[in-house]
């Protein structure tokens, strides 16, 4: 005669944090079904974002961007270089994203990880194909000397959505760039170094547009859209959609990779939300 067996009490119980470790996807699904995420955000919510300019004094332009737990620092260094033969009046833009083990245990030391290379490539394509900068502005003397802009993005703390943060930091750093006016004289480029930078002895970059992006992940078969995924959400969800738009609402890049075939209505929603997000972000960048 056991009366206890009739009572539907579970064999053993464990805390929510243990449940999260054992069944991360199930833990997550329970939150999503209630319309919230484990960190308290709504499905459409972006994490708090901050932008700081001029954080590296030795660079020509720099910015630090924080998106929740993701922190990236971008420095732009201008260097005099020889132009390519097929484009003698165009300078260079060389973006590079560094995801070292310092920012997350997900990255190993050694050659750049696939994610770092893919992010660098994505930023490179946005900068060049949507003509953010006229490369002819970087010409010092046609066929002899041009400016080469090394755009280095270092991730200090990684918590997902590196592309949005990196692109925002690149655009902020480019807006922050000041380069001393060079003088070209018989094969020698001279850049005076001593005095303070002002409008007479230096120039700013003329940016045609400021593309900013918003990324989303597709959760599960229910295809819920989660904005601005953090690291845990990125590793659980398979499909990822990134939309990059400029201030006029033109799309500069759109990518959809991974699981879940998304119908055009989902993509339309992403574009609309990206437009809103980039407006907010742009306002934030101009405040400073």
């Amino acid at each position: 005669m056991t009366s206890t067996s009739a009572a539907p009490s579970p064999a053993f119980t464990f805390s929510a944090s243990t449940f999260q470790k054992l069944h991360p996807a199930e833990y997550f699904r329970k939150f999503i079904s209630q319309g919230v995420r484990p960190d308290g955000r709504l499905l459409t919510g972006f994490r708090p974002t901050t932008v700081h300019y001029g954080v590296i004094s030795t660079a020509n332009g720099s910015a630090m961007v924080r998106v929740g737990g993701t922190t990236v620092v971008c420095g732009v260094k201008a260097e005099v270089a020889e132009p390519r033969l097929d484009s003698p009046d165009q300078g260079y833009l060389v973006p590079n994203v560094d995801l070292s083990p310092i920012c997350s245990s997900a990255f190993r030391p050694g050659p750049p990880s696939e994610q770092a290379q893919v992010t660098s490539d994505a930023i490179d394509r946005v900068l060049k194909e949507s003509k953010v900068l006229d490369l002819k502005d970087l010409c010092i003397e046609e066929g002899k000397a041009v400016w080469s802009l090394w755009i280095d993005v270092v991730c200090v703390s990684y918590d997902g959505n590196i592309y949005d943060a990196a692109l925002a930091s690149v655009m902020a750093a480019l807006a922050n760039v000041r380069i001393r006016k060079p003088t070209y004289d018989e094969g020698i480029v001279k850049v005076s170094g001593a005095q303070e930078l002002d409008d007479d002895n230096s120039f700013k970059l003329n940016l045609n547009r400021t593309p900013l992006s918003a990324s989303f992940v597709l959760f599960d078969t229910s295809l819920e859209l989660l904005a601005d995924p953090n690291f845990a959400e990125e590793s659980i969800c398979e499909g990822q959609i990134s939309v990059t738009v400029d201030e006029e609402g033109q799309i500069c890049a759109l990518s959809k990779v991974g699981g879940g075939s998304s119908s055009p209505s989902i993509l339309k929603e992403c574009v609309d939300r990206a437009k809103e997000r980039s407006k907010d972000l742009r306002a934030l960048m101009q405040q400073q």
Partner: peptide, 18 residues
Amino acid sequence: SPILFSDSTGLYTEEEYF
């Protein structure tokens, strides 16, 4: 037409994309 993969670069409007 559910899209499995999409990768677009350049400058374009939403209308053009669809």
